[in-house]
Amino acid sequence: MTNSLTGITRRLLVGFGLASLGLVAAAQSSYPNRPITLVSPFLAGSSADNTARQISEIAAKDLGQPIVIENKPGAEALIGMTDVVRAPADGYRLLWAGGGSLMGVPAMRKKPPFDPVKDFTPIAASVDFSFFMYVHPDLPAKSMKEFIAYAQANPGKISYAVGNVQSRMIMGDLARRYKLDMVQVQYKGEVAAGADLISGRVQAMFGTTTQLQMAKSGKLRVISTSLSKRSAIMPNVPTLREEGIEGAEFGGGWLSIVAPAGLDAAITAKLHAAFTKALADPSVTQRLQDAGLVYTPRGNGAALGEFMRSEYALYRKTAIELDLVRD
């Protein structure tokens, strides 16, 4: 009797298991069967947020379901990032991740809120953007060498704005290497930081293309870029390497699409194909170029994951060197 019951139990368990596998397979084949949410941890209307909307509109056509952008800014993008980390790994909640926050926020914590490599499934991208050194026109520095020399000769007289994690690390690294005594002023974003830079409340900032129009109108001066080569949108601006300036290994910034860890491979492949196709669309490419952004294919999810792993190692190393790691 016992053996008979055991056999029945085993057959029932096998049946349940096969049924579960069938449900999973059906879910994978029918994905997506409802709208997808792409969480944007940036303010609505920012260049990063606008880019998310452009590519999502095209990817949605390929996937056959709407992609809804949900803005969750704040706390250095931590609100939006933790929202997606805690979401089910079913492909219906994704993150439009910025490299500076995705890597920098956990890199600066003794107990990181998440692991940017282990806790996310890489999907597609990245979209790369430039970081420029902006200074107020009244500052007597027309190159990074002149800026460093002026800062060394005038300790404590330069205040620099920090609008994101990456700019904080670039400026901090330069200050450490060249023993610059400057005052760091932190802002919640580059818009507020740029306003104070234009008014002269602060004199310098490493930032994205957000302030580029102000520079082109003469309200700010651009003296360098952290990119490995000159930017096509500011070809007359030399790189730090050209001037022989050490440090700032970060180059430009980047954006990518990730999902919670453990996302099924078939769903990952569908999303990767749709977003990769959208990013390569000529209309998107032109809009990116107009905004000073460039799509840089980094292969499939595994290749993007390796890139993210190396980036996190760099951010963590820099955070430790600059004594930025806190509880």
Rank of each mutant, 00 (worst) to 15 (best):
D128S: 10
P41E: 02
A215R: 00
G194H: 14
G247T: 14
K111R: 11
F114H: 12
W254G: 00
Y160A: 14
G299Q: 07
Q65S: 07
V165Q: 09
T210L: 14
V39L: 00
I245P: 01
A291Y: 02
T82P: 11
P122C: 08
Y315P: 09
R287T: 07
S217M: 05
Y315T: 13
G218E: 05
V162E: 06
D181I: 07
N154E: 00
Q211V: 13
G74L: 14
A204L: 01
V258S: 06
I267Q: 07
G45P: 09
A97D: 10
F147T: 01
D138N: 08
Q289F: 15
S226W: 10
Q65A: 07
K216C: 04
K188M: 06
A265G: 04
V105H: 00
S30W: 06
T51C: 03
Q166R: 11
S167R: 06
S159H: 01
G301R: 03
G98A: 13
A75D: 10
L227N: 11
A273L: 09
S29A: 14
D281C: 12
L197Q: 04
L197I: 14
R86W: 14
K270Q: 07
A77C: 02
L271F: 04
I170F: 01
F147D: 01
A97T: 00
Y150A: 03
F206H: 09
V325M: 08
L13D: 15
E249I: 12
G98E: 07
F250I: 05
R10N: 04
L322G: 12
Q211F: 05
A60R: 12
G292A: 14
S283C: 12
M171N: 08
Y134G: 07
M108Q: 00
V85N: 04
R176H: 01
P32M: 00
D264Y: 09
A303D: 04
L304T: 09
R11E: 14
V24N: 02
K229R: 11
R201P: 12
G156S: 06
A192R: 00
Y178D: 11
A60Y: 03
G251T: 03
T209S: 07
E146P: 14
I223M: 03
K216Q: 15
R309D: 04
D196W: 08
L78M: 05
Y160G: 12
V258T: 03
P35N: 14
V222M: 15
S256L: 08
P238D: 10
L212K: 00
L212C: 00
T296Y: 03
M133C: 10
P235T: 15
K317Y: 06
V185T: 02
K216S: 07
A192H: 02
S126V: 12
A195K: 02
F42L: 15
Q184K: 10
E70R: 13
G156M: 06
M108A: 07
E246M: 09
L288D: 12
K110Y: 02
G194L: 11
S40G: 05
I148H: 01
L21I: 10
F129G: 00
L18D: 01
M103I: 10
D181V: 08
G299H: 07
I245D: 08
V325I: 15
G17I: 15
A291W: 13
F129C: 09
